[in-house]
């Protein structure tokens, strides 16, 4: 189990008692994408999923799937925001992932040095 997942388990976050067939499929999809090492190519899809749902499995609280994807998404998004010349465009493009990262990095109490510093004052295009 990953370090972050170990950190997540003891937090008193209610997990859904059981997953629907659709949630199982979505969980399988993101597990597969992470294991294949393909998340960088599917960030748009992740952003779309998080546009319509607070968390990946459309649950009201984060699940293991969120934590497992977050672990890989965080460095990717950090890299994208560091290397971009147009920070507004990058924020605009991945705004839903950023919202989700903002929440999870605090929930998991990541040390400040490891967190993504989010600029809340940027005015984003609609």
């Amino acid at each position: 189990m990953s370090e972050l997942l170990e950190k997540f388990k003891p937090l008193s976050v209610d997990q859904p008692a059981s997953l629907s067939r659709e949630q199982e499929a979505v969980a399988a999809q993101w597990k597969s994408i992470v294991l294949k090492g393909n998340l960088a190519n599917d960030l748009d899809e992740l952003n779309l999923r998080l546009r319509d749902n607070a968390f990946i499995l459309a649950s009201t609280q984060p699940t293991d799937t969120d934590v497992e994807v977050f672990e890989v998404a965080l460095p990717l998004i950090k890299e994208l925001t560091f290397s971009t010349k147009d920070i507004k465009a990058t924020y605009g493009k991945y705004r839903h992932i950023l919202r989700w990262i903002d929440y999870l990095q605090r929930l998991l109490s990541l040390p400040e040095s490891e967190q993504l510093k989010i600029n809340y004052d940027l005015e984003l295009p609609h």
Partner: peptide, 15 residues
């Protein structure tokens, strides 16, 4: 779903 592993699992209902 855009991932074919997940598509196969969903259709077979085998997770």
């Amino acid at each position: 779903l855009i991932d074919t592993d997940a598509i196969l699992r969903y259709i077979l209902n085998d997770f």
